[in-house]
Design a protein around this nucleic acid. Structure first.
Lengths: 144, 144
DNA sequence: CCGTATCCAACTAGATACTG
DNA sequence: CAGTATCTAGTTGGATACGG
């Protein structure tokens, strides 16, 4: 609670009262920070996989189903490590062995990821429906 | 609760127990859906501004401080409209007038945005510290 | 006023090859 | 095993000009 101010009221009401307000609107109360971290293609996958325990590089790569390349996995874990969300441990053995695990802060992020997942699952049908309705309309259907 | 299964345990513990598990790991319990929607540069800003009420196109553009272009604002509100998060109302007047507002679903999203903001604000100092520590190290400091 | 169309710059990500 | 280097393709976003 040091930077920026955030306030909410019940969002069920259509509009009128402020739901989110920031003293520094430029950086959106800092939401942008998290989004930049989670918005890329692979970070969330890595966090989710590491949520259940320590993993080595190759094992981590195998578990990510989309088929992440070595390069992208390296970039992703490096970013997460730099932000203090992932701890990287190198054992100078032959062959080399590197282990990755979430830090405390990284684990706290899994809460957010779960919230996102829950919201997504809950609203997926509604979103799919909205998309179909939108895509199916005659293109001049933009009146009130 | 129709697609995918999600489960959590307390994430304070270092590791071991599953924190998040999915039956369809490929799409990460659907987190990817939300992230794709919120991960772009402007969606969150639009949602935040609309959270406090109905706005016209130009007014919306003015309120977004990063200086969003007409093009990007159009693309962003169209995506949000297509997903059923934003309602677009056209008054066929001269000059034309278009109003944007959050739908119920859109308002429920502001909860998530607030969670993201809170987490970001709470951990921003720790992240900044981690980055400095990471950037300041001698580049061969990768031992245990 | 509210867009759409076009062009262009920047960034992201994949494939591949090579190293300690 | 765990990367790094390089090259290339695809996507995103900004600037600008024009249309209803």
């Amino acid at each position: 609670m040091s930077a920026g101010h955030t306030a909410v009221t019940t969002p069920g009401a259509s509009a009128g009262e402020p739901v989110i307000s920031c003293e520094t609107p430029q950086d959106e109360c800092g939401v942008r920070d998290v989004l930049d971290r989670l918005g890329d293609k692979w970070s969330v996958y890595v966090v989710v996989e590491l949520a259940s325990g320590v993993l080595r590089f190759k094992e981590l790569q195998r578990r990510i189903h989309g088929g992440i390349s070595q390069r992208m996995l390296t970039l992703t874990v490096r970013r997460l490590e730099r932000d203090g969300l992932v701890k990287r441990t190198v054992y100078p053995t032959i062959p080399p062995q590197v282990e990755y695990e979430l830090t405390e802060m990284g684990h706290s992020l899994t809460h957010l990821v779960k919230s996102l997942a829950d919201w997504s699952i809950a609203h997926r049908p509604a979103i799919a429906e909205a998309r179909e309705a939108y895509d199916a309309r005659p293109a001049e259907d933009v009146r009130t």
